[in-house]
């Protein structure tokens, strides 16, 4: 019992200490001129869905869930957003070369098709980010058209 008590206290103290490490937030709240939606003529249905399903991790503005107030959850999210933005940042779309746009679009199509994106760990909480079969097809065909227009 004593051992349990000590462990509980250590865990508690650690839990308290890590609360004082802030994370850097991904909240710019502006739409840059380089944004995917600005430079492309995206149908509004697709635009809205992409913003809900992708922009939390693939843009400079994340709308954070309540548990981002608590460590270590905030670290976990920070990591994900960082990684997501390095892979693809919709806010910087027009800064990509055509070659990279082509690569990005290929990956977007592949990963949406296979259901890899949006990630299960994300849609678990963000149920509205799940792509219905219908919208999934529209997004994919839109991305295909965009990809073909690069050539």
């Amino acid at each position: 019992m004593r051992v349990f008590k000590i462990i509980a206290w250590i865990a508690l103290i650690l839990f308290i200490i890590i609360q004082f490490f802030p994370t850097e937030k991904n909240e710019s709240y502006t739409t840059p001129d380089n944004d995917f939606m600005v430079v492309n003529n995206v149908p509004s249905k697709i635009e809205n869905q992409l913003k809900v399903s992708c922009y939390d991790c693939h843009s400079n503005s994340t709308s954070y869930p309540w548990y981002n107030k608590i460590q270590p959850a905030a670290w976990y999210l920070e990591d994900h957003v960082k990684e997501g933005k390095a892979e693809l940042n919709f806010n910087e779309w027009s800064t990509y070369s055509d070659r990279r746009k082509d690569s990005k679009l290929r990956s977007i199509i592949k990963q949406i098709e296979s259901g890899e994106m949006p990630m299960d760990s994300y849609t678990l909480i963000h149920r509205d980010a799940i792509l219905s079969e219908n919208i999934k097809n529209s997004v994919i065909s839109y991305m295909r058209i965009l990809k073909d227009s690069l050539k």
Binding site: E24, K25, N26, E27, S28, P32, N60, N68, K69, K85
Partner: peptide
């Protein structure tokens, strides 16, 4: 948490 500002765009 409220008082954090925007992060700089990440460089590729």
């Amino acid at each position: 948490g409220k008082k954090n500002e925007a992060t700089a765009p990440m460089s590729n």
